[in-house]
Design a protein around this nucleic acid. Structure first.
Lengths: 118, 118
DNA sequence: CATATTGGTAACAACAGAGTTACCTTTCTC
DNA sequence: GAGAAAGGTAACTCTGTTGTTACCAATATG
């Protein structure tokens, strides 16, 4: 389970937010959210696989704790798309022209459309 | 389609990254990625629903363009979990104690476990 | 030691997501 | 105007995810 899929589920995001306030057990999380205990257990397993959560065994209890490191990948992705200045009209025009030129060349030159790399 | 689900798919992330380099058409994106054109078309519809992409109609062509605004929600979520100082051992102990105390109180006081709010 | 509590997992049903091919409409181009 | 190009959608299949209940193992507790 990758980080992006891990945080795609709303309940898992709630669980992470809850764990940000401090460790908790499966029964606690299940009591605080409208899902069964096995459901919480499996969500926690996924979060563990994503490296977002770790469990400290304390006797028969298991204290789940947030591990925010993997979120840097998410932030990096978002940042890479966000930090991009608003494209001026002139640049848009240029890109538009580029698209048209490229497509014409492709139509004239390429017999197959399954070239291996882009 | 919410933003978190939108960026959960690897291909959609690639499409967004590609669109960050400039607008593109469906045929272009389909040629650059190992999926059929209808698949790309539907991914773009989802990205549009998420507000991550917008289409400029140019004749029979449709130029898709990145719209990074919705990503602030993603960054905000990640940041809210990340900006949390490493928890010192003492605090962990305190929280641990808290969990134990709360669970004991709950066991002693609560007859049913299906109270409506937490 | 008997019992309750915690929690993981299996088995199942229901649903959503992602891919494909086939088909249709719209718009260029000759 | 005929044909090619672009693109959206429908229909279908497949797979993964999410939820549930039932069951089992391990550990506290009286």
């Amino acid at each position: 389970m990758d980080v992006f899929s891990a945080i795609a589920d709303p309940l898992r995001r709630e669980l992470l937010t809850r764990l940000a306030a401090g460790p908790a057990r499966v029964v606690d999380l299940a009591a605080e959210h409208p899902v069964s205990r096995p459901a919480v257990s499996r969500h926690l397993r996924m979060l563990t696989e994503a490296g977002l959560v770790v469990a400290d065994d304390v006797g028969r209890e298991r204290h789940y704790r947030l591990l925010p490191e993997p979120l840097v990948e998410v932030r990096a992705f978002a940042a890479s798309l966000e930090r991009r200045p608003p494209i001026p009209e002139s640049a848009l025009d240029a890109l538009d022209t580029e698209v048209r030129r490229t497509s014409r060349e492709r139509r004239l030159a390429a017999p197959t459309h399954t070239e291996e790399s882009a």
